[in-house]
Computed example of a mutant assay.
Amino acid sequence: MTHAGRQRLKLLAFFAIFALPVAVAWGMVEWRIGIPEGRTAHGELQPSLPILSQWPLTAVEKDGEGDWLLAFDCPERCAERADRWWRLHRALGREADRVSRLRIGGGGEPLPGAALSQWTASPEWRSPHRLWILDPEGRPVLGYAPEVAASDVLDDLRRLLRLNPEPPMARYDQASSVVGGGTDGQ
């Protein structure tokens, strides 16, 4: 092979190195080969549910104003279910203070760190033993069936917290308003 032939071969190999990945990617998109399912959340998206302030509940309290909320409907066997979500809350580690828990229904005292509320009416979208994750503004984000694995909820919650970081000074702003008594600079 002559020198010019080797140079042409090198040039063709160079073009192939850059063109081959583009051709493979185009084929994957065109024929849907090797494309992941696209599922990222284990729960069901809940855009049709009303915001928390419109739920027919007695008073609802959250630990922090900017907290995400784990709300679970508990008409029976509340101690077992509450313990399950308490353990999940603890598994969040340092992010646990960004999440509050709300038990809806059931008798007895809630576990530490959880609030208790009751249904004043039963809405048509209510499903007993259901768990919802609500954003800091009270919008339902994800809903889970009663048999959901706690690890799936934990994965989703960690992902939501990672994708929606807390403002860097939020903890200090809350602490200074408590220490200062909330007196607006007086």
Rank of each mutant, 00 (worst) to 15 (best):
M1F: 10
L49Q: 01
V22Y: 09
W31L: 07
P56L: 06
A4I: 11
V99G: 01
A145V: 15
E109R: 11
G38V: 09
P36K: 07
L45E: 04
R130Y: 03
R6T: 05
R94G: 14
A82H: 05
D173R: 11
I35Q: 08
A25P: 05
T120K: 08
S151I: 14
A149T: 14
K10G: 07
N164K: 02
H89P: 11
V179A: 15
D67I: 01
G138Y: 00
T183A: 14
G182I: 11
I33Y: 10
C74M: 09
E124R: 14
G93A: 13
P112N: 06
P110I: 05
F18C: 08
W26C: 12
V178N: 11
L131C: 03
G106A: 10
A145N: 15
P165S: 05
E80S: 15
L163Y: 07
A150S: 15
R162C: 09
V141M: 06
N164W: 03
G27Q: 11
R81K: 13
D135N: 13
D63T: 13
E147M: 14
A79S: 15
L160R: 03
R130L: 04
L70H: 02
L163P: 01
P110C: 07
L12M: 10
W55Y: 01
D97R: 15
S100I: 04
R159F: 08
G181L: 08
G138F: 00
E30C: 11
W68K: 01
R158K: 09
L163T: 06
G34P: 01
A23C: 09
E109M: 09
L49C: 03
L134S: 00
L157A: 06
R101E: 02
G108R: 09
V141A: 04
L111W: 05
D97W: 14
L131A: 02
Q186A: 15
G38S: 10
W125Q: 03
L70P: 03
G107H: 11
H42S: 08
G180A: 09
H3K: 07
L70D: 01
D73C: 04
G180S: 10
G5D: 11
A150N: 11
G181C: 07
G5F: 09
R77F: 12
L142D: 00
L116G: 02
A59F: 05
G182W: 13
R126N: 03
A82K: 03
L11W: 07
F15A: 15
Y144D: 02
E44N: 10
I33W: 13
D97Y: 12
A170Q: 05
R81N: 08
G5H: 12
E109Q: 09
P21L: 06
G5C: 08
R81D: 06
A114F: 03
R39Q: 13
E137Q: 13
A145C: 12
